[in-house]
Design a protein around this nucleic acid. Structure first.
Lengths: 245, 245
DNA sequence: ACCTGAACACCGTTCAAGT
DNA sequence: ACCTGAACACCGTTCAAGT
């Protein structure tokens, strides 16, 4: 897929043995920094213990001194990212404190942004979805706002769950469409600019007689997927209306 | 993790060369049958070209005569499952035709059930989310009902997208909680029934002073995750209310 | 305690060969 | 055309060894 770019050290470097790393070059934090970076840059498939170690300038097995294995690293990355979400400040400096509905909206937006900025986290969430209580700060503040909005305890828990589920699903969609768009651009670049006879009828080869509405609404559906953020906000508004009345 | 159960042939069988398979034992359909079965039974991690071939009673490379590789098989599995969703019949035999809102509800329920029954599809969806137009029949009928409910073209496309996003997110949550519950049961069985001193304070070790609402609502949150279907329906109703007014 | 290199049991896939 | 086995370049992880 990529050309022969070596991300860490050159092939020549990798051949001769690296100068031995100082005794305490590594710690959990440095490993996690590199893991998040590698995951976001290269994607989950390229997230390899060997690649991670190379990025740290260290032998592969050095990482095992600080983590029991790849799974523990993945768990730690997930916990860190979910905990570090850039949430809106609790007390806005200048303006009024927003109403509970507006605060829930802002919190969800922040969660969506986090997932959109770190597409690889989605892969981790899919492989091992969070406990619900792993969003900690996000959960705490969202639940508080939902209760303040007048919801009962059960209703608040249920609403929080629904909001989180929707947010993850929407982010998943956006990440997928981004990936697909990149793949398509790559394909078209490879095929060259000579496609005059392409696309005979249905945009995806779908029979328009069997799926009239689907084919007819294709442009609108493409729009909805294209601008993930705007689409997310529309859905979020609808969900909030249904949840808060 | 598992005991030494060999899913396909015994270790002795695997040692001596298998009797050569007849010329046309394999075809795309048989491969996909086995793939879906293996995926649902053993999970995505155990979904291996070697395991798949063994289940088919065939050498590993035989599969490559019908599929270009693992990715193509995964794509085909996803398309097949999404296309084969067990949707509610278009014309109910006895009763009245339901209103558009009720029909959308039933369609979404069917989609959720499909994802819940095939948890591994979720992994595939996460790795390469669908085009939106891969749900074909589901999309066609949902879009039709949304238009019938009075939505504009853009609104219908947006609403369909939101419903699908929410459905995938909710199914993801349910699958995750199921997996986690199984893992926990396994862990407890291993530890034996001697846990009298466990769980000192917060259910997950969360500081109750930092996360009062989250800790306080833990039972309700656990309930919301426990019965995935009921939780999904509550969220779906809220979303529909917001979308259809 | 922390880091290293070789080795083991896997994986997807290429390739030349069988029928 | 379809199926096979050996081989290649990976992967996560175990292990004995270095400092």
């Amino acid at each position: 897929m990529t050309t022969s770019s070596s991300p860490g050290r050159s092939a020549a470097d990798r051949t001769r043995p690296r100068t031995r790393a100082p005794r305490n070059t590594l710690n959990r934090e440095r490993v996690l920094d590199a893991a998040v970076d590698l995951l976001d840059r290269a994607g989950p498939d390229a997230f390899t213990m060997r690649a991670l170690a190379e990025r740290l300038g260290v032998a592969t097995m050095a990482v095992y001194s600080h983590f029991s294995g790849k799974d523990e690293i993945i768990d730690a990355v997930r916990v860190r990212l979910l905990a570090e979400a850039d949430l809106p400040s609790r007390r806005p400096e200048g303006g009024e404190r927003p109403g509970p509905r507006e605060e829930v909206r802002e919190l969800c937006r922040a969660a969506y942004r986090l997932l959109a900025d770190h597409p690889s986290v989605l892969h981790l969430l899919a492989a091992r979805p969070p406990d619900g209580d792993e969003f900690t700060l996000f959960a705490e503040r969202t639940l508080e706002a939902l209760l303040r909005a007048g919801l009962e305890r059960r209703e608040a828990a249920s609403a929080y769950t629904a909001l989180t589920q929707f947010t993850v699903g929407a982010a998943l969609w956006a990440a997928g469409s981004r990936k697909r768009r990149a793949a398509q651009a790559c394909r078209e670049a490879g095929a060259g600019p000579g496609g005059g006879t392409a696309r005979p009828a249905g945009p995806a080869g779908l029979p328009a007689d069997r799926y009239p509405h689907l084919v007819g609404l294709m442009p609108e559906l493409a729009d909805a997927v294209r601008d993930g953020t705007a689409q997310y906000e529309r859905g979020l508004d609808a969900l909030l209306t249904g949840l808060l009345g």
